[in-house]
C-alpha cells in the first residue's frame, strides 16, 4: 500500500474512517493510501523500484519454466501413465472412482444426497470463490481477535458447535475432524498474547477470511486424500498399506 503513496491527498480527518478501494479508475483516478490514527506514515522508500522486464523477468520466467520441464521430464521417464483394459460397460470396477480432483466431491456423495453433494455444494463453492473480492472486503486485514474478542468468541463457539452438530447428525466425520481442528485453532489463538512474535502471534494477526479459506482448504485436502487413498470396494474404508 505504501508504495502507492505518490499523490498528495490530504488526510484531513484521521479519525473514524472507512477505507475502500474502487477499481474504476475513471471514478477514482488516484489510488489512495489512508493513514489512520493507529498507524504512523513512516515512509522508508518511495517511488519506483522497478527493473526491466527484459531481461530480468524473462530470464527468471525461463528458469522457472525450465525447472518445471525438468521435473516433468524426469517423472515422465520414470513413471508410466496408467492404462487399464479396454473400456467395458458390462464390467464395473469396484470402486469406480472419478479423477482425483473430484474425489472430494465423490467422498461427499457418500454422506449427502446427490443433489446436495453433487450440485449444491460445488455451486456454492464456485459462487463463494467468485464473490470473495466483492463481499466483506476486509481492507485493513485486521486480526480476527483484535476487537470485540468476547463477543466474537461466543459467536465462534456457537458457529463451530452448530457446524459440528450438523456434521455429527449426518456422520460426516471426514469433514468434522478438519472443522474441529481449524475451529479449535481459531479459538486457541484467541489466548495468544497480541505481541507474540511467533506462530501464535502470526495466526492472531489473521483476519476471518483467512480462517474460513483455511478451513475450506483443510476440508478439501482431507476429503480428496480420503477419497483417493482410503476408499476401496463399495466405498468402504481401506488402509492404503493393506490390512494389518
Amino acid at each position: 500500500m505504501v508504495d502507492c503513496i505518490r499523490g498528495t491527498s490530504p488526510v484531513s480527518e484521521p479519525k473514524d474512517f472507512r477505507a475502500s478501494f474502487d477499481s474504476d479508475s475513471q471514478r477514482t483516478p488516484v489510488r489512495v493510501a489512508f493513514v489512520t490514527r493507529r498507524t504512523t506514515p513512516h515512509v522508508t522508500k518511495a517511488g519506483d523500484d522497478r527493473v526491466m522486464t527484459n531481461p530480468d523477468a524473462l530470464l527468471r520466467v525461463a528458469v522457472a519454466v525450465m525447472a518445471l520441464l525438468i521435473v516433468l521430464v524426469v517423472v515422465s521417464l520414470l513413471f508410466d501413465a496408467p492404462l487399464e483394459g479396454l473400456a467395458n460397460p458390462l464390467q464395473t470396477p469396484n470402486p469406480a472412482k472419478a479423477p482425483w480432483y473430484f474425489l472430494g466431491l465423490q467422498e461427499l456423495l457418500h454422506y449427502f444426497p446427490p443433489v446436495v453433494a453433487g450440485v449444491v455444494i460445488p455451486s456454492l463453492v464456485v459462487l463463494a470463490l467468485v464473490v470473495i473480492p466483492y463481499f466483506n472486503v476486509n481492507v485493513e486485514a485486521e486480526g480476527f481477535w483484535n476487537r470485540n474478542g468476547e463477543r466474537k468468541s461466543i459467536l465462534v463457539w456457537v458457529a463451530v458447535a452448530a457446524l459440528s452438530a450438523f456434521l455429527v447428525w449426518f456422520s460426516v466425520y471426514a469433514v468434522l475432524v478438519p472443522t474441529l481442528v481449524s475451529g479449535g485453532a481459531l479459538i486457541v489463538t484467541a489466548a495468544a498474547p497480541p505481541q507474540d512474535k511467533g506462530f501464535g502471534g502470526w495466526l492472531r494477526s489473521k483476519p476471518l477470511p483467512f480462517w474460513i479459506m483455511t478451513w475450506f482448504l483443510v476440508v478439501a485436502i482431507t476429503l480428496t486424500v480420503i477419497g483417493t487413498c482410503f476408499r476401496g470396494a463399495g466405498w468402504s474404508w481401506v488402509w492404503p498399506w493393506g490390512e494389518l
Binding site: P55, D56, L59, R60, A62, V63, M66, L69, I70, V73
Partner: peptide
C-alpha cells in the same frame, strides 16, 4: 545469476 541458471538448466534439460 539468472543467465547462468538458465544455461545450466538448459543443458540439463
Amino acid at each position: 545469476d539468472s543467465a547462468r541458471a538458465f544455461g545450466t538448466l538448459g543443458v540439463l534439460l
